[in-house]
């Protein structure tokens, strides 16, 4: 009889983890995505005088449930963007959402995207999420997974409209761009 011990997930997954032989490094998902956010910040130019409310800080907002946890504070807490210290803020409801440089929207909140965009109208906020068709519905950068690697899509129409300038390198690395 097939007496089989199930070497099941997730240990089983990890033992032969997801990474084909050419993988170089392996990481947890959200610290990695946090590092992407940090890199986006380096490749996007915000209009001068935008976001005066942030008082000289570079604010990354997280709307909805926070998948990053403390990792993002540990990773980015002592980093700066254009000499602005990075601050991570969490917004649990739409009312709490305040202008920031980057707004990560949890996929559970994407249905409120229109309201969020209304609220950010005229502000230069880079919206980021990880939901299919996010960029088609007015979002700016969307994470997608491909072979356990993180890729992203860009909606350049939306970033243009918000006055954000994206470096050509960022556009080149995107999986797809809505121009």
């Amino acid at each position: 009889m097939a007496a089989v011990f199930m070497w099941v997930m997730p240990q089983g997954e990890d033992a032969f983890a997801a990474s084909p032989a050419y993988a170089e490094t392996i990481a947890k998902e959200y610290p990695l995505k946090a590092a992407f956010l940090y890199n986006f910040a380096k490749f996007v130019e915000w209009p001068p005088e935008s976001n005066p409310e942030t008082q000289g800080a570079f604010v990354i907002g997280i709307f909805g449930d926070d998948p990053f946890g403390r990792d993002i504070d540990e990773l980015l807490g002592n980093k700066t963007i254009n000499n602005k210290k990075i601050i991570v803020e969490r917004f649990l409801s739409l009312k709490e959402v305040r202008p920031c440089h980057i707004l990560f929207i949890n996929s559970s909140e994407v249905k409120k995207l229109e309201d969020i965009l209304d609220r950010l109208e005229g502000k230069s906020v880079l919206t980021v999420s990880e939901t299919s068709l996010f960029t088609h519905n007015g979002g700016m950068i969307n994470f997608v997974m491909e072979d356990n690697k993180v890729r992203f899509e860009i909606n350049k129409q939306a970033t243009d409209k918000a006055g954000l300038r994206l470096s050509s390198q960022l556009l080149k690395l995107a999986k797809s761009v809505i121009a």
Binding site: M9, P10, Q11, E13, D14, A15, F16, A17, A18, S19, P20, A21, A23, E24, T25, I26, A27, K28, E29, L32, A35, F36, N39, F43, M145, D147, N148, K149, V150, R151, Q169, L170, L173
Partner: peptide, 19 residues
């Protein structure tokens, strides 16, 4: 950014092991 794009993630948050 290019290097980040080559990082693999474990599908569950467990001890990462490179294949």
């Amino acid at each position: 950014l290019e290097e980040l794009m080559n990082v693999e993630i474990t599908s569950v948050s467990k001890t990462p092991q490179v294949l």
